[in-house]
């Protein structure tokens, strides 16, 4: 029968020391929306829970449109959705957090938890990738800042990378001028936790051209990622139908859907391309460039 200890550190170093001491069977407890379920199912060996919700630094948020922002990983989805600074400068993130249907979940689930779970269907992670988020990690090797996209990819191929590691903050770059980000998702029903397939497109717009384009498709490939070749095509010149078509073809080649019970591979692909176009269209409208 499982039996584990519980600690509630007030400072980051205390938390890190506890994690290090305990080794592989220590788990970080934030909102618990995933971990508590795993504890009940007794699927993971656990000897210690480190509750990080009472470390003030991890629950701090600084939004700065010029020098970049720093968001503690224990902020809840509800707090992010309601934060005026997030709404203003990172609206897609606020929107994605607000779109999580159950209020009870938004009140508990944290940004850090969303990242650790790393669902390929997460609209929140897609939004973070649009804003080129980086994540501050603390582990045996000390403190480290890594681009979120790399972190997601690495954890996907090796879950054990999460052991003994604590995510303290999300860093978002300075806000670009005339930058927008749009997400379009396909839901089986309005209150679904994650869309089956989604497309996020972000860019800034200068003189008829997209710059800093970011394209993310959720729910199709094994983990969330940016499609840089598609982004390149979008930025090559004026975005006409021809270019959009080339981008879509490129995207289609980069997708490797497999049948799931929710959607066949074929449907996933068709929907991803449809949503991608919709997102591009939405972005143009948002940036006031309907040409």
């Amino acid at each position: 029968m499982l039996s584990y200890h519980y600690v509630r550190p007030r400072l980051l170093p205390e938390a890190l020391a506890a994690l290090q001491r305990e080794g592989a069977e220590a788990r970080v407890l934030a909102g618990g929306t995933t971990l508590v379920r795993q504890l009940k199912q007794q699927r993971v060996p656990v000897s210690l829970l480190v509750d990080i919700k009472h470390i003030p630094d991890l629950h701090s948020i600084r939004i700065d449109s010029r020098s970049g922002s720093r968001i503690g990983t224990t902020l809840t989805l509800e707090e992010l959705a309601a934060h005026a600074g997030v709404q203003k400068y990172y609206p897609l993130l606020a929107e994605a957090c607000a779109a999580v249907p159950a209020w009870q979940v938004r009140n508990r689930a944290t940004l850090g938890g969303e990242i650790c779970v790393g669902s390929r269907r997460s609209a929140i992670l897609a939004a973070l990738l649009c804003y080129e988020a980086a994540v501050t990690l603390h582990g045996a090797a000390g403190e480290q800042v890594r681009p979120l996209s790399d972190f997601i990819r690495d954890v996907y191929s090796d879950k054990s990378l999460l052991h003994g590691v604590l995510l303290s903050h999300i860093l978002l770059g300075p806000r670009l001028r005339r930058f927008g980000a749009v997400f379009r998702g396909l839901y089986q029903y309005p209150g679904q936790r994650h869309p089956v397939v989604g497309a996020a497109v972000a860019a800034s717009y200068y003189e008829g051209n997209f710059q800093h384009a970011r394209v993310i498709i959720s729910g199709v490939n094994p983990h969330l990622q940016r499609y840089t070749d598609v982004e390149q095509i979008l930025m090559e010149g004026t975005l006409d139908e021809d270019r959009l078509q080339r981008a879509a073809v490129e995207l289609g080649q980069a997708l490797h859907p497999v049948d799931t019970t929710q959607a066949s591979a074929e449907y996933q692909r068709a929907m991803a391309l449809h949503l991608f176009r919709q997102a591009v269209q939405g972005l143009r409208t948002q940036l006031g460039n309907s040409k």
């Binding site: 249907p101 089986q188 029903y189 309005p190 209150g191 679904q192 936790r193 019970t261």
Partner: peptide, 23 residues
């Protein structure tokens, strides 16, 4: 309730959708 090779694959309220307020 979907069965794959005879095994139910969505036997819980997360994966078996019961109409919500938003439906």
């Amino acid at each position: 309730l979907i069965y794959k090779d005879g095994v139910p694959i969505n036997p819980d309220l997360y994966n078996y959708h019961v109409a919500m307020f938003t439906d």
